[in-house]
């Protein structure tokens, strides 16, 4: 027994070390680097603990670029995509889970299989299609696409959360004469709330990080999202690494802040909510 615990301990320490090095250290390095002087960032002798400290990169990006416009756009697009995705997926997941209708398995698998059509394939046709219906250069263009990428997986995750809700509760409500609408809004949604929260965050992240479509479907500066804006403020012939790094940190900061407040729901929602 003691021996096994020792092995366990060694395994645990090793994997912890590995995880910290691989998954956390890059962030430490990038964040500290974004405060380094330009000379130190590109120096051939790389420093892990910074030797210099400057806010010039942040100053430049916050006050000399359209950062806040990009931020606003990303927030609008991501929140709207999230809300629409959640409404559509909750409805679909409930339908798939509780109402066993003809073709439900087919729909369920087909949803997952939508990922079989790579974004690159859809790019040009979607551009042409959106041009026809006058959707180019609008938030809605991006929202439509983001919902497409987020919902299939969202439905699958939600379905798993719904499965955890004991049938008796629902049954009891019906016996008391509740309508389907009441059952969903008063019982299903509140009970699956942690799960819905984590799925919402998933949808938000998918929209927040989307690059390809945002770069093609939007051409006006006033509608660009953060990833596209960030890619654009870097010149073609020169790279201002400090600028780029502080931009990278700032582009991540909003989601990280979001995570400070609701991250634990995401993780606990996912991990305790038993995806089955």
């Amino acid at each position: 027994m003691i021996k096994e615990n020792n092995i366990k301990f060694i395994f645990l320490s090793l994997s912890l070390l590995l995880i910290i090095l691989i998954f956390f250290f890059p962030f430490f390095w990038i964040i500290t680097s974004s405060f380094k002087s330009p000379e130190e960032i590109i120096a051939t002798s790389t420093t892990i603990i910074p030797r210099s400290f400057t806010l010039e990169h942040y100053n430049k990006i916050l006050f000399n670029s359209d950062f806040f416009i990009y931020l606003k756009n990303s927030l609008i697009v991501s929140f709207s995509s999230m809300i629409i995705s959640i409404i559509l997926s909750v409805s679909a997941a409930y339908g798939l889970h509780k109402l066993k209708f003809y073709g439900n398995k087919f729909v369920e698998y087909s949803l997952l299989v939508t990922y079989a059509f790579p974004g690159v394939i859809l790019l040009v046709p979607i551009y042409l299609l959106f041009a026809k219906v006058n959707l180019l250069n609008s938030y809605f263009a991006l929202i439509i696409v983001n919902v497409l990428f987020a919902t299939p997986f969202a439905v699958w995750m939600l379905k798993a959360f719904f499965k955890l809700i004991p049938n008796e509760i629902e049954e009891a409500a019906y016996i008391d004469g509740a309508s389907r609408y009441i059952v969903i809004s008063r019982i299903i949604i509140p009970l699956a709330a942690p799960g819905i929260a984590s799925v919402s965050i998933f949808c938000f992240i998918i929209s927040w990080t989307e690059y390809l479509f945002a770069s093609i479907l939007i051409s006006g500066d006033n509608l660009k999202t953060l990833p596209v804006g960030l890619a654009g403020i870097v010149g073609q012939y020169q790279i201002d690494w400090g600028f780029l790094l502080s931009g990278a940190v700032l582009a991540s900061l909003p989601v990280i802040l979001l995570f400070v407040f609701i991250g634990k729901y995401f993780v606990s929602g996912l991990t305790e909510g038993a995806v089955k």
Partner: peptide
Amino acid sequence: QEVQNWGEIYAKAPA
């Protein structure tokens, strides 16, 4: 003015 990215302009302009 509308600023585009070099990375995608070859796709975007013809489209």
